[in-house]
Amino acid sequence: MSTAAANLQLQDAVFVMIAIVTTGAALGVVFLRNIVHNALCLVLTFLGVAAVYFQLNAGFIGLVQILVYAGAISVLIIFAIMLVMDKEINQTNLPIPSLGRRIAGVYITALLVITLVLAIYFTAWPLATGAGAPFDAVGMLAELMLGDYVIAFEAAAVLLLVAVVGAVILAKGVEKQ
């Protein structure tokens, strides 16, 4: 077996491991019944996605993913849980939905997943061509964001401002007169 083929197999094996961990953690977010466990599983999911970025040679995006999502966002979520919760953690479970609803949910999810998996599997994907990851990925990213994609970039800034204003309005609540 040539080195290249062995390398490819190793890549695949790593990807499968990352995928299992990420998907498992994502399932944990949905199925665990303690909200703190959900939040911790979410952190693991974010880390798994970051690992996929690293494997794709998108190191910068992977780092941002870890810093922003696994770091900041998850801390925010846990803070929100702490601030809002006035009961014991194990009492945060939502009531279990009725059997009919659960069956309907599983049915629709299975239908969607199977359809999409089949659609993706039977597609002849055009293979990406090109020279792999560029040397100066961050520089290129900056040029794209402040060049061709500048309107989306600026609009995203306004979007964040709107979100902050909204968070203040909603969190401040009704003012006592």
Binding site: Y149, A155, L159, V162, A163, G166, L170
Partner: peptide, 24 residues
């Protein structure tokens, strides 16, 4: 598509807040 999506989210996030505007 990216610009379209950011525009759509800007509109929708503004609407989330406006919809909940009557806090009482």
């Amino acid at each position: 598509f990216i610009t379209l999506y950011v525009g759509l989210e800007l509109m929708t996030v503004s609407f989330y807040i406006l919809t909940a505007f009557l806090l009482r």
